[in-house]
Design a protein around this nucleic acid. Structure first.
Lengths: 224, 224
DNA sequence: GGCTCGTAGTTAACGCTGTTAAGCTAACGC
DNA sequence: GCGTTAGCTTAACAGCGTTAACTACGAGCC
């Protein structure tokens, strides 16, 4: 079985059969693939080991346990997430409301293009002890900065920037988790209407986000 | 072991040692407790069986499997959720914006008072095949009806009622899942500010919900 | 009464899981 | 050359969901 390992082969040269770093990344990649294929339940130590060509226990020489392995995989996924956000920021003027909206759309888009990562990243079943080591770290600060600039620019109302940032975050996060959880855009509970793709749904929300639910002044009905 | 069963005791009377319904509810109650205590991972067939005083395999005479058992437990939890919503509806005038806000607050409150149920109810890892049998069924229709009435009453802007209902839903759902997932109201990523309890956070959001993020006319800065 | 049938439970077992312990081998430092 | 360590192995443990085969018992029927 060990002879199946691609990197060990029959190299009798000076180089070690497999430098630690190589095995580690091989494990991470196998774990990432399994995670993307079938979620965190599909990721078992033995399956990962099989793909890499090692015994399951070998993984414990590189990672503290399954939880640690998953965390490490997710960290790389989160980097992708941050890159995604940075990409969006290049396309819209700083301090604009449009940028805030676009960041939200990027969040939704990322979540659905990387569902497996997202599910694990924000796994609602997460161990409470991990709380402090969690996602959104860099991402949140970027969002908050954009909110601050938009506020200074007069693009959004004056308020606690953290409050606004959280508000924006909960909006997109709710959309994503709800769709992931029960496919709201096409289940019967969501009425007969088809509400379109997640991103389309988000776009349809933006009016409410920017102008609220209260009727505009022109909407001259009885004002309750 | 079987002699430990509270209901079997040494009743030699005509009545069966344990009517099917009794055992079933006993199993459901034990499962519910385990779920509430430690989430879905803490609920194992053997643990449930232990609590009821049966062997694990006995459960399979009453439920198709673990998934079925969990689903049945969650259904009862969801009933509680609906009752919660109905309670809120009694306290606010129909067709009012306040009722919509209050329904949201009820959602948040319920989620945190019944975290275990909520986590399972909206478990992001759910089997996709269960989609159609899922939550929010009655709850969504109630929400939609309230939105419709508020719209007719001129309390909120004219729009697709499903869109508005979903918007309101994603808002509260995002708040709940985000806090459950990474405790946003007190993690460092959420800046140094403490944003208060979930319900307080929701209340702080309501201005954005009703009036949007755009600055009010009085906010006379450069309007970008 | 005896027979059959269905219900509610049992034990044993299968294959899977994460994880630990003990041992082996090859390379490195001295 | 020797001791140490990294990297891996196999064996094993305890737990999991689930299945199969079996037992005990009450109800209905001839």
């Amino acid at each position: 079985m060990a002879t199946d390992r691609p990197t060990s082969a029959s190299v009798s040269t000076k180089e070690r059969p497999n430098r630690s770093g190589e095995t580690e990344t091989a494990i991470l990649e196998a774990a990432r693939d399994l995670l993307a294929e079938g979620g965190v339940d599909a990721l078992s130590m033995r399956m990962v080991a099989d793909r890499v060509g090692l015994s399951a226990t070998a993984i414990y020489h590189h990672f503290a346990g399954k939880q640690d392995l998953v965390k490490r995989v997710v960290e790389t996924g989160y980097q992708r997430f941050e890159e995604y956000g940075c990409e969006v920021m290049k396309s819209y003027p700083r301090g604009s409301l449009e940028l805030l909206i676009a960041l939200g759309e990027g969040y939704v888009r990322f979540a659905f293009e990387n569902q497996a990562y997202f599910r694990v990243l924000f796994n609602i079943q997460r161990d409470p002890r991990d709380v402090e080591e969690l996602p959104a770290g860099g991402g949140y600060h970027v969002l908050r900065q954009c909110v601050l600039e938009a506020m200074e620019n007069g693009a959004i109302r004056q308020a606690d920037p953290d409050l606004v940032a959280h508000y924006l975050w909960t909006n997109v996060h709710g959309l994503v988790t709800l769709i992931l959880a029960c496919n709201i855009q096409k289940c019967d509970c969501a009425a007969e209407v088809t509400l379109g793709s997640p991103v389309e749904l988000y776009r349809a929300f933006t009016t409410f986000l920017t102008d609220g639910l209260r009727p505009p002044p022109s909407d001259s009905r009885k004002t309750q």
